[in-house]
Design a protein around this nucleic acid. Structure first.
Lengths: 165, 165
DNA sequence: AGAAACCAGTTGCATCATAGAACCAGTCTT
DNA sequence: AAGACTGGTTCTATGATGCAACTGGTTTCT
């Protein structure tokens, strides 16, 4: 996978990498959903991504260095995808973009509670979460303290349970 | 222009709005280049956007409420595009996305100096710049102090002159 | 007054990307 | 051995993108 390199502008290059309907959504699901396998990403996709598109995007993101692909030791045919450091550093982009969407687009409460917590937590929370992602995806040593991932997931489940009794 | 609304997730909705090759690049040119007319945007496009694509995007962004379109009093056939408040609030997204691109993609010094200044200035500088955009595009009363737009443009011109003697 | 340049797009056409549905071969579980 | 699960692939229809040429009207220059 090679970029067009139409210009060396950071915004332009970022959009050459991420400027499509699905790439950032897949990375979101890996970060906040914790999904690492093809079937998980396919079946837990709230937006209903098609399997051929998912396959193409995973391949492209891997070629671009945002994901790595490895065999899963538990099942000879299972593949596990991991975020790379550049992908983990997209977390602030997710946070700021989520904050914007929450303010200006018709979001649902259930699906925006995590964006809200992320916005309220600010950069210190983002740093904690990025460290957790490094532990999960890059094998970095774990730090102590309450898991941001679990906090976000719990808040989401709580709102979901409240709204769909 | 209507969104798919595949899900009410802020990231998903943001990508339904901005997840294409050109929308954010056009908004970037309006914010940082100061271009407001069709020909300006077309001819100053560093990435060489095609005129039909530009026309389609301007129409879509207007329908989505990110731009407004008005006759230019100085020329009966001239049209002036303005950023709306939601579009102006994309500035932090630009700043964070630019910072990411600058760190992980093959940017050129010339085209990333503004992203660097924006990153170093942080939220206080972003707020100043958003206020300037409100003055320019929404007719808000001007505040005093040095113009961020001019500072960014001057830094860019300075680097450009230095690199292409 | 006439020519040239400028204005915001539009049109036609070829190619590329996306979307949905069905399908596949190997693997693991029961 | 049957059935479910694995990461995809294939087919086909439709839509988006990209390029080049072009349009009708407006303003400026000489």
């Amino acid at each position: 996978m090679t970029l067009d390199l139409r210009s060396g502008c950071p915004i332009n290059l970022s959009m050459e990498v991420l400027g499509d309907r699905w790439s950032l959504v897949i990375l979101r699901d890996m970060m906040f959903g914790g999904w690492r396998h093809f079937r998980e990403l396919l079946e837990n996709s709230r937006e209903g991504i098609a399997s051929n598109i998912l396959a193409a995007r995973l391949k492209r993101l891997t070629e671009l260095g945002l994901l790595t692909r490895a065999d899963d030791p538990s099942h000879r045919q299972k593949v596990i995808y991991s975020l790379t450091e550049p992908a983990i550093q997209l977390l602030p982009v997710m946070a700021v973009l989520g904050a914007w969407g929450r303010r200006h687009l018709p979001v649902t409460e259930e699906l925006s509670i995590r964006a809200q917590l992320l916005e309220e937590g600010g950069p210190p929370l983002w740093d904690d979460f990025m460290d957790e992602l490094r532990t999960l995806h890059l094998g970095a040593p774990a730090r102590d303290g309450p898991s941001v991932f679990e906090r976000l997931t719990a808040a989401y489940e709580e709102v979901k349970a409240r709204n769909v009794p």
